[in-house]
Design a protein around this nucleic acid. Structure first.
Lengths: 247, 247
DNA sequence: CGGGTCTTTGAAGATAGTCAATTTAGGTGG
DNA sequence: CCACCTAAATTGACTATCTTCAAAGACCCG
């Protein structure tokens, strides 16, 4: 029965014991506030690779925080063209765009087997009224998303293919590093086509540009396995452009 | 002295009597709540054409709502490249990107003589805790900005020059129409270069594309004066792409 | 009215896209 | 465990779109 209790513990979500608490929502909450938050957050949901967490047009009820795994979000135009608007890793939120119209504005798709926490928005909103620091952090998270989007606009509007890809790799690197992973040796969770969609490039251009970087000795490319051998060279390339921080 | 009183009235901001109250912040508030909001909002500030409302890097204290006039917001990269991230007209908010780091993340510049309301963020935040519908509306406004940004990404990532410009003109048209202005006959407040910066194009491309549209009889261009003669042709051009609503 | 900025237009050039062929990887089932 | 099959990635050749460079013309503010 102790076993069952333990089992229960691993299933039940708890912000207070979550390893992501410094990155995710409960930043700066005290113990009481944290347990109030725990009470609101729904048990985590598991998704297999390729599964949709939500789709554009579906009713909006909850935000989702990535616990483990990797997601992409994308908006689709009527004629089928798809724009990847971001890649989300652990501790990052999805669904903020759904608040405005009470309907999700993008698709969220797991790029590997993943797990998310569900945050019912109504309850988060009322909890925010009771815990000012939570409300404030919420505003900050939404604002951070706006800043991120502005930087993507800068990337898409002003940068050349090489600069875009360099900025992308450095951005991934930094986000992985801040989660305790190796900054200069990682696996891409997304395809060349998905990278291209995010960066406003065709998949062939992504592939060619990666090859070019590798040829110059800046990176090593073994399919999805990327090593940044000379990150500073990449930084020089994007220098002048404020890096597009994805989160 | 009656004169002075009147004068005072025109200076003092009042959401409850503002013609923009259906577009701007106080959507859905009752009379009491509206007057609480009035108490928080600072007297409006006037800016001349070209003047900065705030600059990237400045400390963030307030959001600003456009009362009259027209603004652009832009982020600049270190090497001087500039990306216009949006154009704001009456009833639209600026400064949301400053919340995340307590520092403004972009420049806001008046494109014509303009007037803004200042919304001290701290006080808006605490007022939100007292007026749930205000808090909710605030979240919705921030979410709307995220949706707008996603649509700009789609525009920059997926659309050709003609499609971008058509989407831009239709977007302006719609926003003007919702403010009671003519939808198909308006003055551009921004230069070709600023349009280009927003759309990820060079000013020459903007100019050429406008000429092309005019040559086809879709629009009339007299410098900054634009008439949409065949808006449906423009819509056909962008059809398939969800239009990039700027607000 | 005049200097300077903004705009238009042309011609040449560069970057990224398209089309296509080949290779490789990863998953499935015998 | 291996062979197969489908999907992804690489690479090349060619093309389209947009940019760059340049020059001339128009407007606007002071």
């Amino acid at each position: 029965m102790n076993d069952q209790l333990l089992h229960h513990h691993t299933l039940k979500v708890s912000c207070s014991s979550c390893s992501l608490r410094e990155l995710c929502l409960p930043v700066g909450l005290n113990r009481d506030e944290m347990s109030q938050l725990d009470a609101v957050i729904r048990q985590s949901r598991r998704l297999k690779r390729g599964e949709y967490l939500f789709r554009s047009g579906e009713g909006f009820r909850s935000l989702y925080a990535v616990r483990t795994g990797f997601f992409k979000t994308c908006v689709a135009s009527q004629d089928g063209r798809e724009q990847v608007t971001g890649f989300q890793m652990s501790g990052e939120l999805m669904g903020l765009d759904g608040i405005s119209a009470n309907v999700h504005g993008c698709d969220a798709i797991a790029l590997e087997d993943s797990e998310v926490c569900e945050l019912p928005f109504n309850r988060m909103e009322s909890l925010g009224r009771e815990i000012p620091s939570l409300q404030h952090h919420f505003f900050r998270l939404m604002s951070r998303e706006i800043v991120r989007d502005q930087n993507v606009m800068l990337l898409l509007g002003n940068m050349k293919a090489e600069e875009r890809l360099a900025a992308f790799l450095l951005n991934l690197s930094g986000r992985l590093a801040s989660r305790g992973f190796a900054a200069n040796d990682f696996i891409l969770r997304m395809s060349r086509e998905e990278i291209g969609s995010f960066l406003g490039l065709k998949l062939e251009t992504v592939s060619r540009t990666l090859s070019k970087f590798a040829q110059q000795g800046w990176i090593s490319v073994d399919h999805k396995h990327i090593k940044l051998d000379q990150p500073d060279s990449l930084k020089t390339l994007v220098s002048g452009c404020s890096q597009a921080h994805s989160h």
